[in-house]
């Protein structure tokens, strides 16, 4: 199966990736090849097979106690942020 330019533009938007005009054909070509490659999976017979989401099948979720263990490190964490003011992370205006 091959992907079209429109397909790749749609995927890039969903993934929030800017892809330039020059790059686009390169991705169309390589993603088409990858999709062709993973299409091999259709040759496997998987009727009645349980999907495997995790390598250790018999492990189950461990739970933690409901305790507040964290203290405020806001200023330190915000040291990594591109733009903050009044303790808030700033982004271009969100329109609801």
């Amino acid at each position: 199966m091959t992907l079209t330019r429109r397909d790749v533009e749609g995927i890039a938007l969903l993934a929030r990736l800017e892809i330039s005009e020059q790059e686009l054909p390169v991705y169309v070509e390589s993603l088409s090849r990858i999709v062709g490659f993973i299409d091999q999976l259709s040759t496997a017979t998987t009727e009645g097979v349980e999907p495997m989401a995790h390598p250790l099948e018999d492990q189950v979720q461990t739970l933690r106690d409901d305790q507040v263990t964290e203290v405020d490190h806001r200023d330190r964490y915000q040291g990594n942020a591109p733009l903050v003011a009044a303790g808030l992370y700033l982004v271009p205006k969100v329109i609801e």
Partner: peptide, 30 residues
């Protein structure tokens, strides 16, 4: 990285999940 993000976005997206992601999880079982 962009190529893999796009591949992953594609195989999880509506209409392709069963054919790729779910199928791969089953083959992983095999």
């Amino acid at each position: 990285v962009k190529r893999r993000i796009m591949t992953g976005t594609y195989v999880l997206s509506a209409g392709y999940y069963d054919a790729y992601y779910l199928k791969a999880q089953k083959v992983r079982s095999l």
